[in-house]
Amino acid sequence: METKNLTCINCPMGCSITVKMDGGRIVSITGNTCKRGEDYAGKELTNPTRIVTTTVKVTGGQSNTVSVKTGKDIPKEKIFDCVRELKNVQVQAPVRIGDVVASDIAGTGVDVVATGNVERTGVDVAEAGNV
């Protein structure tokens, strides 16, 4: 029987989780305080995943970049492929939160969406956001 100690990354509580494994099979998961912790521990030992956040270039906007994230967590080993692909992505302002800036990133089947708003140049930011 093998014991693995993990720190859950789902929320800032950072629960210490102990997983007992028997030949690659999970026998028990303890130490988590919610369901997310159990899911995380199972995934972390079989197929670890992460949400990736970065920025992409924007043209014609009041900012040169906009922040983005993967719509859901992707396999950990795809993180650098994801960021590398996004280096070549350029979007046209205006950009709104939730806009898809790249689909099926690094072959994961996951879309990358904007997490910030960028107005076109010449538009009064204060006016555009909310009138």
Binding site: N10, C11, S67, T115, G116, N117
Partner: peptide
């Protein structure tokens, strides 16, 4: 703060900083 991890308490979902602010 473009990383994720915001809003689990307030919105029961995981947001990035700009999304939480918005």
């Amino acid at each position: 703060c473009i990383h994720n991890g915001f809003g689990l308490h307030t919105f029961q979902e995981e947001l990035t900083g700009p999304e939480y602010a918005d």
